[in-house]
Design a protein around this nucleic acid. Structure first.
Lengths: 243, 243
DNA sequence: GATTGATTGAATCGATTGTTTTAATTATAC
DNA sequence: GTATAATTAAAACAATCGATTCAATCAATC
Protein backbone atom coordinates (compact mmCIF):
# COMPACT_ATOMS: atom_id res chain seq x y z
CA UNK A 1 0.00 0.00 0.00
CA UNK A 2 1.12 3.50 -0.75
CA UNK A 3 2.89 5.26 2.06
CA UNK A 4 0.63 8.25 1.68
CA UNK A 5 -2.46 6.09 1.84
CA UNK A 6 -1.18 4.40 4.98
CA UNK A 7 -0.46 7.70 6.67
CA UNK A 8 -3.90 8.98 5.83
CA UNK A 9 -5.57 5.88 7.26
CA UNK A 10 -3.60 5.97 10.49
CA UNK A 11 -4.01 9.67 11.01
CA UNK A 12 -7.71 9.59 10.20
CA UNK A 13 -8.20 6.74 12.63
CA UNK A 14 -6.56 8.71 15.37
CA UNK A 15 -8.42 11.95 14.69
CA UNK A 16 -11.77 10.27 14.17
CA UNK A 17 -11.28 8.58 17.49
CA UNK A 18 -10.33 11.78 19.25
CA UNK A 19 -12.91 14.16 17.82
CA UNK A 20 -15.45 12.10 15.93
CA UNK A 21 -16.15 11.70 12.25
CA UNK A 22 -18.14 14.84 11.53
CA UNK A 23 -16.00 17.01 13.75
CA UNK A 24 -12.81 15.99 11.97
CA UNK A 25 -12.20 17.86 8.73
CA UNK A 26 -10.18 16.50 5.87
CA UNK A 27 -7.84 19.43 6.23
CA UNK A 28 -7.06 18.47 9.80
CA UNK A 29 -6.21 15.00 8.60
CA UNK A 30 -3.93 16.05 5.76
CA UNK A 31 -2.20 18.57 8.01
CA UNK A 32 -1.47 15.97 10.67
CA UNK A 33 -0.50 13.35 8.12
CA UNK A 34 1.65 15.75 6.12
CA UNK A 35 0.03 14.95 2.80
CA UNK A 36 -1.95 16.84 0.22
CA UNK A 37 -5.68 17.35 0.33
CA UNK A 38 -6.25 15.78 -3.04
CA UNK A 39 -4.54 12.60 -1.90
CA UNK A 40 -7.60 11.66 0.12
CA UNK A 41 -9.93 11.79 -2.82
CA UNK A 42 -7.37 10.18 -5.05
CA UNK A 43 -6.86 7.18 -2.82
CA UNK A 44 -10.30 6.84 -1.31
CA UNK A 45 -12.78 8.86 -3.33
CA UNK A 46 -14.53 10.58 -0.47
CA UNK A 47 -14.48 11.09 3.27
CA UNK A 48 -17.14 8.44 3.67
CA UNK A 49 -15.13 5.86 1.73
CA UNK A 50 -12.07 6.71 3.79
CA UNK A 51 -14.05 5.82 6.88
CA UNK A 52 -15.28 2.60 5.30
CA UNK A 53 -11.81 1.43 4.38
CA UNK A 54 -10.59 2.44 7.81
CA UNK A 55 -13.18 0.24 9.45
CA UNK A 56 -12.80 -2.57 7.00
CA UNK A 57 -9.13 -3.19 7.73
CA UNK A 58 -9.82 -3.64 11.43
CA UNK A 59 -13.31 -5.11 11.51
CA UNK A 60 -12.27 -8.22 9.65
CA UNK A 61 -9.80 -9.57 12.23
CA UNK A 62 -12.05 -8.59 15.12
CA UNK A 63 -14.99 -10.41 13.60
CA UNK A 64 -12.92 -13.53 12.96
CA UNK A 65 -11.77 -13.63 16.56
CA UNK A 66 -15.29 -13.12 17.76
CA UNK A 67 -16.62 -16.01 15.76
CA UNK A 68 -13.76 -18.25 16.82
CA UNK A 69 -14.26 -17.48 20.50
CA UNK A 70 -17.98 -17.89 20.26
CA UNK A 71 -17.72 -21.27 18.57
CA UNK A 72 -15.36 -22.35 21.29
CA UNK A 73 -17.80 -21.31 24.00
CA UNK A 74 -20.70 -22.96 22.24
CA UNK A 75 -18.73 -26.15 21.71
CA UNK A 76 -17.78 -26.36 25.36
CA UNK A 77 -21.33 -25.77 26.44
CA UNK A 78 -22.44 -28.69 24.29
CA UNK A 79 -26.09 -29.34 24.81
CA UNK A 80 -25.97 -27.85 28.28
CA UNK A 81 -26.70 -24.28 29.33
CA UNK A 82 -24.74 -21.42 27.82
CA UNK A 83 -23.26 -18.93 30.28
CA UNK A 84 -24.07 -15.30 29.63
CA UNK A 85 -20.69 -14.04 30.72
CA UNK A 86 -18.93 -16.43 28.39
CA UNK A 87 -20.82 -15.11 25.41
CA UNK A 88 -20.27 -11.51 26.44
CA UNK A 89 -16.63 -12.26 26.98
CA UNK A 90 -16.31 -13.74 23.52
CA UNK A 91 -17.90 -10.66 22.06
CA UNK A 92 -15.84 -8.14 24.00
CA UNK A 93 -12.43 -9.74 24.16
CA UNK A 94 -11.45 -9.17 20.51
CA UNK A 95 -12.23 -5.49 20.88
CA UNK A 96 -10.11 -5.24 23.98
CA UNK A 97 -7.17 -7.04 22.44
CA UNK A 98 -7.51 -4.84 19.37
CA UNK A 99 -7.61 -1.83 21.64
CA UNK A 100 -4.50 -2.77 23.52
CA UNK A 101 -2.36 -2.81 20.44
CA UNK A 102 -4.02 0.33 19.13
CA UNK A 103 -6.79 2.02 21.10
CA UNK A 104 -7.74 4.32 18.26
CA UNK A 105 -9.99 2.01 16.34
CA UNK A 106 -12.15 1.13 19.31
CA UNK A 107 -12.56 4.78 20.03
CA UNK A 108 -13.68 5.37 16.48
CA UNK A 109 -16.42 2.82 16.97
CA UNK A 110 -17.53 4.54 20.13
CA UNK A 111 -17.51 7.87 18.38
CA UNK A 112 -19.51 6.55 15.48
CA UNK A 113 -22.13 5.34 17.87
CA UNK A 114 -22.22 8.73 19.51
CA UNK A 115 -22.74 10.41 16.18
CA UNK A 116 -25.52 8.09 15.17
CA UNK A 117 -23.47 6.70 12.32
CA UNK A 118 -23.05 3.28 13.83
CA UNK A 119 -26.22 1.56 12.57
CA UNK A 120 -25.14 1.95 8.96
CA UNK A 121 -21.60 0.82 9.75
CA UNK A 122 -22.82 -2.15 11.71
CA UNK A 123 -25.08 -3.26 8.93
CA UNK A 124 -22.20 -3.07 6.51
CA UNK A 125 -19.42 -4.65 8.52
CA UNK A 126 -20.78 -6.48 11.55
CA UNK A 127 -24.21 -7.81 10.69
CA UNK A 128 -23.43 -11.55 10.44
CA UNK A 129 -21.50 -11.57 13.69
CA UNK A 130 -24.19 -9.62 15.49
CA UNK A 131 -26.82 -12.10 14.41
CA UNK A 132 -24.85 -15.04 15.74
CA UNK A 133 -24.16 -13.37 19.05
CA UNK A 134 -27.72 -12.37 19.47
CA UNK A 135 -28.76 -15.95 18.96
CA UNK A 136 -26.17 -17.13 21.47
CA UNK A 137 -27.31 -14.59 24.02
CA UNK A 138 -30.88 -15.64 23.53
CA UNK A 139 -29.91 -19.24 24.13
CA UNK A 140 -28.02 -18.22 27.25
CA UNK A 141 -31.12 -16.44 28.53
CA UNK A 142 -33.96 -18.77 27.57
CA UNK A 143 -36.40 -17.55 30.20
CA UNK A 144 -36.06 -13.88 29.31
CA UNK A 145 -39.07 -12.47 27.42
CA UNK A 146 -38.27 -11.41 23.88
CA UNK A 147 -39.02 -7.75 24.35
CA UNK A 148 -37.08 -7.57 27.58
CA UNK A 149 -34.19 -9.26 25.87
CA UNK A 150 -34.15 -6.68 23.08
CA UNK A 151 -34.19 -3.84 25.53
CA UNK A 152 -31.33 -5.28 27.49
CA UNK A 153 -29.32 -5.61 24.30
CA UNK A 154 -30.12 -1.95 23.79
CA UNK A 155 -28.81 -1.08 27.24
CA UNK A 156 -25.72 -3.12 26.56
CA UNK A 157 -24.97 -1.27 23.36
CA UNK A 158 -25.16 2.05 25.15
CA UNK A 159 -22.90 1.00 27.97
CA UNK A 160 -20.47 -0.68 25.59
CA UNK A 161 -20.19 2.25 23.21
CA UNK A 162 -19.74 4.70 26.03
CA UNK A 163 -17.07 2.54 27.58
CA UNK A 164 -15.21 2.33 24.32
CA UNK A 165 -15.28 6.09 23.98
CA UNK A 166 -13.63 6.84 27.26
CA UNK A 167 -13.20 6.29 30.95
CA UNK A 168 -14.89 7.87 33.96
CA UNK A 169 -13.60 11.25 34.96
CA UNK A 170 -11.61 10.35 38.04
CA UNK A 171 -10.08 6.97 37.46
CA UNK A 172 -6.70 8.54 37.89
CA UNK A 173 -3.48 7.33 36.41
CA UNK A 174 -4.26 3.70 37.04
CA UNK A 175 -6.75 3.53 34.20
CA UNK A 176 -5.12 6.10 32.00
CA UNK A 177 -2.56 3.53 31.03
CA UNK A 178 -5.19 2.10 28.75
CA UNK A 179 -5.89 -1.14 30.51
CA UNK A 180 -8.66 -2.17 28.20
CA UNK A 181 -8.57 -5.69 29.50
CA UNK A 182 -9.64 -4.68 32.99
CA UNK A 183 -12.16 -2.30 31.53
CA UNK A 184 -13.81 -5.07 29.56
CA UNK A 185 -13.74 -7.37 32.58
CA UNK A 186 -15.65 -4.83 34.59
CA UNK A 187 -18.11 -4.26 31.81
CA UNK A 188 -18.77 -7.96 31.30
CA UNK A 189 -19.43 -8.41 35.01
CA UNK A 190 -21.79 -5.46 35.03
CA UNK A 191 -23.67 -6.56 31.92
CA UNK A 192 -23.94 -10.12 33.16
CA UNK A 193 -25.61 -8.86 36.29
CA UNK A 194 -27.92 -6.72 34.20
CA UNK A 195 -28.94 -9.50 31.84
CA UNK A 196 -29.56 -11.87 34.72
CA UNK A 197 -31.57 -9.38 36.71
CA UNK A 198 -35.21 -10.29 37.37
CA UNK A 199 -37.68 -8.65 35.03
CA UNK A 200 -39.42 -5.62 36.46
CA UNK A 201 -43.02 -6.30 37.37
CA UNK A 202 -44.38 -3.24 35.65
CA UNK A 203 -43.46 -4.38 32.18
CA UNK A 204 -44.56 -7.99 32.29
CA UNK A 205 -47.83 -7.35 30.51
CA UNK A 206 -46.39 -8.61 27.28
CA UNK A 207 -47.20 -12.06 26.00
CA UNK A 208 -44.01 -14.01 26.49
CA UNK A 209 -42.65 -17.14 28.10
CA UNK A 210 -42.76 -15.68 31.58
CA UNK A 211 -44.72 -17.34 34.31
CA UNK A 212 -47.59 -15.23 35.59
CA UNK A 213 -47.60 -14.67 39.26
CA UNK A 214 -50.93 -14.27 41.05
CA UNK A 215 -50.86 -10.48 41.42
CA UNK A 216 -48.26 -9.79 44.02
CA UNK A 217 -48.90 -7.21 46.70
CA UNK A 218 -48.91 -3.85 45.03
CA UNK A 219 -45.93 -2.10 46.46
CA UNK A 220 -46.35 1.63 46.52
CA UNK A 221 -44.56 3.45 43.79
CA UNK A 222 -44.36 7.06 44.87
CA UNK A 223 -41.56 7.70 42.43
CA UNK A 224 -43.75 7.45 39.39
CA UNK A 225 -45.43 10.78 38.93
CA UNK A 226 -48.34 9.58 36.90
CA UNK A 227 -48.69 6.11 35.62
CA UNK A 228 -51.98 5.82 33.85
CA UNK A 229 -51.94 8.31 31.00
CA UNK A 230 -49.31 7.81 28.40
CA UNK A 231 -48.39 10.11 25.61
CA UNK A 232 -47.79 8.51 22.26
CA UNK A 233 -44.43 9.21 20.81
CA UNK A 234 -43.41 9.53 17.19
CA UNK A 235 -41.28 6.64 16.00
CA UNK A 236 -37.58 6.96 16.42
CA UNK A 237 -36.09 9.10 13.74
CA UNK A 238 -33.44 7.19 11.92
CA UNK A 239 -30.11 8.87 11.87
CA UNK A 240 -28.74 9.48 8.44
CA UNK A 241 -25.21 9.21 7.27
CA UNK A 242 -24.91 12.52 5.53
CA UNK A 243 -26.06 15.72 7.06
CA UNK B 1 -42.44 35.35 26.77
CA UNK B 2 -42.45 36.43 23.17
CA UNK B 3 -44.31 34.17 20.81
CA UNK B 4 -41.34 34.07 18.49
CA UNK B 5 -39.01 33.14 21.31
CA UNK B 6 -41.34 30.36 22.40
CA UNK B 7 -41.58 28.94 18.90
CA UNK B 8 -37.81 28.98 18.54
CA UNK B 9 -37.34 27.13 21.82
CA UNK B 10 -39.91 24.46 21.02
CA UNK B 11 -38.69 23.92 17.49
CA UNK B 12 -35.05 23.84 18.50
CA UNK B 13 -35.84 21.32 21.20
CA UNK B 14 -37.52 19.08 18.67
CA UNK B 15 -34.82 19.36 16.03
CA UNK B 16 -31.96 19.06 18.49
CA UNK B 17 -33.59 15.91 19.76
CA UNK B 18 -34.06 14.49 16.31
CA UNK B 19 -30.72 15.31 14.71
CA UNK B 20 -28.43 16.53 17.46
CA UNK B 21 -27.06 19.93 18.29
CA UNK B 22 -24.25 20.25 15.79
CA UNK B 23 -26.20 18.63 12.99
CA UNK B 24 -29.08 21.06 13.38
CA UNK B 25 -28.45 24.38 11.69
CA UNK B 26 -30.06 27.61 12.76
CA UNK B 27 -31.59 27.86 9.33
CA UNK B 28 -33.37 24.57 9.80
CA UNK B 29 -34.78 25.87 13.05
CA UNK B 30 -36.01 29.18 11.69
CA UNK B 31 -37.50 27.45 8.67
CA UNK B 32 -39.44 24.98 10.81
CA UNK B 33 -40.46 27.63 13.31
CA UNK B 34 -41.42 30.16 10.65
CA UNK B 35 -39.33 32.96 12.07
CA UNK B 36 -36.39 35.01 10.92
CA UNK B 37 -32.77 34.05 11.34
CA UNK B 38 -31.93 37.22 13.23
CA UNK B 39 -34.59 36.42 15.81
CA UNK B 40 -32.39 33.70 17.27
CA UNK B 41 -29.47 35.98 17.91
CA UNK B 42 -31.76 38.74 19.06
CA UNK B 43 -33.52 36.62 21.67
CA UNK B 44 -30.68 34.35 22.70
CA UNK B 45 -27.41 35.78 21.47
CA UNK B 46 -25.99 32.62 19.99
CA UNK B 47 -26.75 29.03 19.20
CA UNK B 48 -25.02 27.96 22.38
CA UNK B 49 -27.12 30.28 24.54
CA UNK B 50 -30.24 29.01 22.84
CA UNK B 51 -29.29 25.52 23.94
CA UNK B 52 -28.58 26.70 27.46
CA UNK B 53 -31.95 28.38 27.83
CA UNK B 54 -33.60 25.35 26.30
CA UNK B 55 -32.10 23.09 28.93
CA UNK B 56 -32.59 25.53 31.76
CA UNK B 57 -36.37 25.66 31.42
CA UNK B 58 -36.66 21.87 31.74
CA UNK B 59 -33.76 20.94 33.99
CA UNK B 60 -35.08 22.92 36.92
CA UNK B 61 -38.31 20.95 37.44
CA UNK B 62 -36.59 17.64 36.77
CA UNK B 63 -33.93 18.37 39.36
CA UNK B 64 -36.52 19.40 41.94
CA UNK B 65 -38.42 16.16 41.46
CA UNK B 66 -35.23 14.17 41.70
CA UNK B 67 -34.25 15.73 44.99
CA UNK B 68 -37.76 15.30 46.39
CA UNK B 69 -37.89 11.63 45.43
CA UNK B 70 -34.43 10.95 46.71
CA UNK B 71 -35.16 12.54 50.06
CA UNK B 72 -38.26 10.43 50.31
CA UNK B 73 -36.31 7.26 49.62
CA UNK B 74 -33.61 8.20 52.08
CA UNK B 75 -36.18 9.06 54.72
CA UNK B 76 -37.93 5.74 54.28
CA UNK B 77 -34.65 3.90 54.56
CA UNK B 78 -33.90 5.63 57.83
CA UNK B 79 -30.72 4.27 59.30
CA UNK B 80 -31.22 0.96 57.52
CA UNK B 81 -29.83 -0.12 54.16
CA UNK B 82 -30.61 1.91 51.06
CA UNK B 83 -31.93 -0.07 48.10
CA UNK B 84 -30.10 0.48 44.82
CA UNK B 85 -33.22 0.26 42.71
CA UNK B 86 -34.98 2.87 44.83
CA UNK B 87 -32.19 5.36 44.26
CA UNK B 88 -32.04 4.61 40.56
CA UNK B 89 -35.79 4.91 40.37
CA UNK B 90 -35.70 8.32 42.04
CA UNK B 91 -33.10 9.45 39.55
CA UNK B 92 -34.85 8.14 36.45
CA UNK B 93 -38.50 8.73 37.20
CA UNK B 94 -38.47 12.53 36.71
CA UNK B 95 -36.92 12.07 33.30
CA UNK B 96 -39.56 9.58 32.34
CA UNK B 97 -42.42 11.74 33.52
CA UNK B 98 -40.89 14.69 31.70
CA UNK B 99 -40.55 12.51 28.64
CA UNK B 100 -44.14 11.41 28.70
CA UNK B 101 -45.46 14.93 28.47
CA UNK B 102 -42.83 15.87 25.93
CA UNK B 103 -40.26 13.33 24.76
CA UNK B 104 -38.16 15.92 22.98
CA UNK B 105 -36.19 17.20 25.91
CA UNK B 106 -35.03 13.79 27.03
CA UNK B 107 -33.87 13.05 23.54
CA UNK B 108 -31.90 16.27 23.52
CA UNK B 109 -30.07 15.12 26.60
CA UNK B 110 -29.30 11.82 24.96
CA UNK B 111 -28.07 13.58 21.86
CA UNK B 112 -25.88 15.93 23.83
CA UNK B 113 -24.24 12.97 25.46
CA UNK B 114 -23.66 11.42 22.08
CA UNK B 115 -22.02 14.59 20.83
CA UNK B 116 -19.76 14.88 23.84
CA UNK B 117 -21.43 18.09 24.89
CA UNK B 118 -23.04 16.65 27.98
CA UNK B 119 -20.21 17.10 30.50
CA UNK B 120 -20.32 20.88 30.17
CA UNK B 121 -24.10 20.89 30.36
CA UNK B 122 -24.12 18.60 33.37
CA UNK B 123 -21.66 20.75 35.22
CA UNK B 124 -23.78 23.79 34.54
CA UNK B 125 -27.24 22.42 35.25
CA UNK B 126 -27.08 19.11 37.08
CA UNK B 127 -23.97 19.08 39.24
CA UNK B 128 -25.56 19.41 42.72
CA UNK B 129 -28.10 16.69 42.00
CA UNK B 130 -25.49 14.38 40.59
CA UNK B 131 -23.36 14.72 43.68
CA UNK B 132 -26.25 13.81 45.96
CA UNK B 133 -27.22 10.81 43.89
CA UNK B 134 -23.72 9.57 43.70
CA UNK B 135 -23.49 9.73 47.45
CA UNK B 136 -26.77 7.87 47.79
CA UNK B 137 -25.63 5.20 45.37
CA UNK B 138 -22.42 4.79 47.26
CA UNK B 139 -24.35 4.34 50.48
CA UNK B 140 -26.56 1.78 48.77
CA UNK B 141 -23.48 -0.14 47.66
CA UNK B 142 -21.13 0.05 50.64
CA UNK B 143 -19.15 -3.04 49.82
CA UNK B 144 -18.36 -1.99 46.24
CA UNK B 145 -14.76 -0.84 45.70
CA UNK B 146 -14.46 2.81 44.79
CA UNK B 147 -12.94 2.27 41.38
CA UNK B 148 -15.45 -0.40 40.48
CA UNK B 149 -18.22 1.92 41.59
CA UNK B 150 -16.99 4.70 39.33
CA UNK B 151 -16.80 2.36 36.40
CA UNK B 152 -20.32 1.11 36.95
CA UNK B 153 -21.57 4.67 37.09
CA UNK B 154 -19.82 5.07 33.78
CA UNK B 155 -21.62 2.05 32.35
CA UNK B 156 -24.88 3.39 33.68
CA UNK B 157 -24.42 6.74 31.98
CA UNK B 158 -23.84 5.05 28.66
CA UNK B 159 -26.88 2.82 28.93
CA UNK B 160 -29.02 5.66 30.19
CA UNK B 161 -28.04 8.12 27.50
CA UNK B 162 -28.51 5.56 24.77
CA UNK B 163 -31.90 4.64 26.14
CA UNK B 164 -32.98 8.24 26.18
CA UNK B 165 -31.92 8.66 22.60
CA UNK B 166 -34.07 5.90 21.23
CA UNK B 167 -35.45 2.41 21.35
CA UNK B 168 -34.14 -0.87 19.95
CA UNK B 169 -34.74 -1.45 16.29
CA UNK B 170 -37.46 -4.04 16.46
CA UNK B 171 -39.59 -3.25 19.43
CA UNK B 172 -42.55 -3.03 17.13
CA UNK B 173 -45.67 -1.04 17.74
CA UNK B 174 -45.93 -2.06 21.37
CA UNK B 175 -43.06 0.11 22.45
CA UNK B 176 -43.32 2.71 19.74
CA UNK B 177 -46.18 4.23 21.66
CA UNK B 178 -43.55 5.91 23.76
CA UNK B 179 -44.04 4.14 27.02
CA UNK B 180 -41.16 5.84 28.73
CA UNK B 181 -42.35 4.56 32.05
CA UNK B 182 -41.86 0.95 31.04
CA UNK B 183 -38.60 1.82 29.40
CA UNK B 184 -37.27 3.28 32.64
CA UNK B 185 -38.56 0.30 34.61
CA UNK B 186 -36.60 -2.03 32.41
CA UNK B 187 -33.51 0.10 32.63
CA UNK B 188 -33.68 0.33 36.41
CA UNK B 189 -33.99 -3.43 36.70
CA UNK B 190 -31.06 -3.93 34.36
CA UNK B 191 -28.84 -1.40 36.11
CA UNK B 192 -29.73 -2.75 39.52
CA UNK B 193 -28.54 -6.16 38.41
CA UNK B 194 -25.38 -4.62 37.05
CA UNK B 195 -24.56 -2.65 40.16
CA UNK B 196 -25.18 -5.65 42.38
CA UNK B 197 -23.13 -8.00 40.25
CA UNK B 198 -20.06 -9.52 41.90
CA UNK B 199 -16.82 -7.78 41.08
CA UNK B 200 -14.74 -9.50 38.46
CA UNK B 201 -11.76 -11.20 40.00
CA UNK B 202 -9.33 -9.90 37.46
CA UNK B 203 -9.68 -6.32 38.64
CA UNK B 204 -9.73 -6.83 42.38
CA UNK B 205 -6.11 -5.93 42.85
CA UNK B 206 -7.03 -2.50 44.09
CA UNK B 207 -7.09 -1.71 47.79
CA UNK B 208 -10.68 -1.20 48.71
CA UNK B 209 -13.33 -2.32 51.18
CA UNK B 210 -14.10 -5.58 49.45
CA UNK B 211 -14.25 -8.75 51.43
CA UNK B 212 -11.71 -11.20 50.18
CA UNK B 213 -13.14 -14.55 49.38
CA UNK B 214 -10.94 -17.50 50.28
CA UNK B 215 -9.80 -18.27 46.74
CA UNK B 216 -12.77 -19.81 45.10
CA UNK B 217 -12.39 -22.87 42.97
CA UNK B 218 -10.73 -21.86 39.74
CA UNK B 219 -12.89 -23.09 36.93
CA UNK B 220 -11.36 -23.26 33.51
CA UNK B 221 -11.86 -20.28 31.26
CA UNK B 222 -11.30 -21.16 27.66
CA UNK B 223 -13.27 -18.27 26.25
CA UNK B 224 -10.93 -15.57 27.45
CA UNK B 225 -7.97 -15.28 25.16
CA UNK B 226 -5.39 -15.05 27.89
CA UNK B 227 -6.59 -15.18 31.38
CA UNK B 228 -5.86 -17.49 34.19
CA UNK B 229 -8.55 -16.86 36.78
CA UNK B 230 -12.14 -16.88 35.61
CA UNK B 231 -14.99 -14.95 37.09
CA UNK B 232 -17.69 -17.02 38.68
CA UNK B 233 -20.99 -15.22 38.51
CA UNK B 234 -23.35 -16.67 41.09
CA UNK B 235 -27.06 -16.42 40.56
CA UNK B 236 -28.69 -13.13 41.34
CA UNK B 237 -28.50 -12.25 44.99
CA UNK B 238 -31.21 -10.53 46.93
CA UNK B 239 -33.64 -8.46 44.94
CA UNK B 240 -36.83 -6.95 46.20
CA UNK B 241 -38.30 -6.38 42.81
CA UNK B 242 -39.60 -9.80 41.92
CA UNK B 243 -38.86 -13.46 41.46
C1' DG C 1 -50.20 61.76 16.19
C1' DA C 2 -45.29 61.82 16.98
C1' DT C 3 -41.55 59.57 19.42
C1' DT C 4 -39.11 56.01 21.42
C1' DG C 5 -37.72 51.33 22.10
C1' DA C 6 -38.55 46.55 20.95
C1' DT C 7 -38.76 43.32 17.33
C1' DT C 8 -38.46 41.48 12.64
C1' DG C 9 -36.93 41.12 7.60
C1' DA C 10 -33.55 40.67 4.07
C1' DA C 11 -29.07 40.71 2.76
C1' DT C 12 -24.41 39.77 3.63
C1' DC C 13 -20.20 38.75 6.28
C1' DG C 14 -16.02 35.77 6.85
C1' DA C 15 -14.88 31.18 7.74
C1' DT C 16 -15.09 26.35 6.87
C1' DT C 17 -16.81 22.27 4.72
C1' DG C 18 -16.16 18.27 1.12
C1' DT C 19 -15.05 18.10 -3.50
C1' DT C 20 -13.12 19.07 -8.09
C1' DT C 21 -9.92 20.74 -11.43
C1' DT C 22 -5.63 21.42 -13.64
C1' DA C 23 -0.84 21.27 -13.70
C1' DA C 24 3.46 19.53 -11.98
C1' DT C 25 6.02 15.73 -10.39
C1' DT C 26 7.45 11.02 -9.85
C1' DA C 27 7.73 6.25 -11.01
C1' DT C 28 7.53 2.52 -14.38
C1' DA C 29 8.02 0.24 -18.84
C1' DC C 30 9.68 0.05 -23.44
C1' DG D 1 16.13 8.41 -23.22
C1' DT D 2 11.38 8.53 -24.05
C1' DA D 3 6.64 7.56 -23.53
C1' DT D 4 3.09 6.25 -20.41
C1' DA D 5 0.88 5.89 -16.22
C1' DA D 6 0.57 6.82 -11.28
C1' DT D 7 0.84 10.11 -7.83
C1' DT D 8 1.24 14.64 -5.69
C1' DA D 9 0.72 19.75 -5.43
C1' DA D 10 -1.82 24.08 -5.57
C1' DA D 11 -5.82 26.48 -6.44
C1' DA D 12 -10.47 27.08 -6.77
C1' DC D 13 -15.27 25.25 -6.61
C1' DA D 14 -20.03 25.50 -4.68
C1' DA D 15 -22.39 24.93 -0.54
C1' DT D 16 -23.17 25.68 4.21
C1' DC D 17 -22.20 27.31 8.72
C1' DG D 18 -22.97 30.87 12.75
C1' DA D 19 -22.98 35.55 13.12
C1' DT D 20 -23.74 40.47 11.82
C1' DT D 21 -25.56 44.58 9.71
C1' DC D 22 -29.05 47.87 8.84
C1' DA D 23 -33.34 49.30 7.47
C1' DA D 24 -38.29 48.33 8.05
C1' DT D 25 -42.00 47.35 11.11
C1' DC D 26 -44.55 47.04 15.35
C1' DA D 27 -46.10 48.44 19.96
C1' DA D 28 -46.48 51.44 23.63
C1' DT D 29 -46.03 56.00 25.86
C1' DC D 30 -46.31 60.81 26.16
Amino acid sequence: MSDTKQKILDTAERLFGEHGYDATSLRQIIAAAGVNLAAIHYHFGSKQELLDELILRKAGPVNEQRIALLERVVAQAGSGPLAVEKVLEAFMAPMSSAAEENPQFVRVMGRLHAEGLLPAVVEQHFQPVIVRFRAAMQRALPELPELEFLWRLHFMIGAMAHTMCGAPDFTGVASARGDFRARIDRLVAFLTGGFRAPVSQGVELESAPCERRPSESVQESPASGRRQAETPVPPQTQTTLSR
